[in-house]
Design a protein around this nucleic acid. Sequence first.
DNA 1: GTCTATAGTTCGATAGAC
DNA 2: GTCTATCGAACTATAGAC
Lengths: 205, 205
Amino acid sequence: MPRSTARPSSSARGERTRSAIIRAAATVFARHGYRGGPLAAVATEAAMTQPGVLHHFASKEDLLMAVLEQRDREGTRRLNESSWADGGGAALDALHDLVAHNGTTPELVQMFTVLVGESVAADHPARAFFTDRYETLRFRTTRAVQRGQDSGEFRADADAATLAALVLAVMDGLQIQWLLDPELDMATRFAVFVDMMKRFLAPPA
Amino acid sequence: MPRSTARPSSSARGERTRSAIIRAAATVFARHGYRGGPLAAVATEAAMTQPGVLHHFASKEDLLMAVLEQRDREGTRRLNESSWADGGGAALDALHDLVAHNGTTPELVQMFTVLVGESVAADHPARAFFTDRYETLRFRTTRAVQRGQDSGEFRADADAATLAALVLAVMDGLQIQWLLDPELDMATRFAVFVDMMKRFLAPPA
DNA sequence: GTCTATAGTTCGATAGAC
DNA sequence: GTCTATCGAACTATAGAC
């Protein structure tokens, strides 16, 4: 592995170009969707020509998958650095922090909302990605609720999997409404939902 | 106005053709989205040629708007025939019935989910339609919650507008997850949310 | 009112020079 | 590694016969 003081190797420079293209593609896909966003627009955004983009990615579809995986990793990293892993009410608070942060990154939110909508169509290249993503998110959120039940913070007789699906649903649904009308504050509304769920899960006195 | 026993007038036959095209377009847009669904596919689905479709609609965009308004009217009619207008818990139960019914019409649900995702992009022709639609739905749902507060069924110190936004968010979010994984039952999960919200809104004993 | 034919674009991908 | 040039496909919309 090259030391940070060394002149960047050819492949390291290549990685930087790839990153710039991924950033540009995220912007274009957020604004116009995958089908509606031409490679030429990605190229312009990355200060290149369209064949230049395809020198770094075999196809537009390849670029799409690279964008999705990159942005997904960034979002996941954020959660992992929070109190998410503690489970229970702390995990719900961590999700609230995430929603508040998302409110400062409309482009990222819009990209995922546009692409998940497109990908619901059976033949969309990102369909499998999103199916997997939701399965993983539901699994992890279910575990966070269960952790709260195991510790006695939450009632044990609630269906953790259903509640996990509801949490993710609220996040997605609020994003849609926020993107259509930016006046709407996601974090404030999500806080009410978290409050509602905590009361619902409070063990009987 | 022609009597029902009369031979259908030319314009009545024209209306039937328009309806058939709208039905065909709804199928195609649900499967591939607006941008991804060619007029030729709509034509095939309606057993016509592509210029035949454009004889009845000035442009693809015109057809899209006709599809949206038609399908929206159908959905709204269903709600109006339920206990929705009573407000309060009865209105929430009416929404649950709607969610259960939606579970039997995946094509309709998919069409709206795909199109709302696409339309979040600023330049999409359906953007204004969906912005208005959510504003209207939020307004009507807010009123339903307030009606419950006025009657004393619900606590008066809850923010009806926020709760309305949450209800719509859950519906949309569950639809996304259901379309990506049809194993997930929307109605069962929505019922848990309704239960949670009713407890949250129960007046203090 | 529906057809065939086609104009006029736009786009993804490839070829090949530098 | 980036460019210019271009191919070939797909799509909306129009023209005009029947």
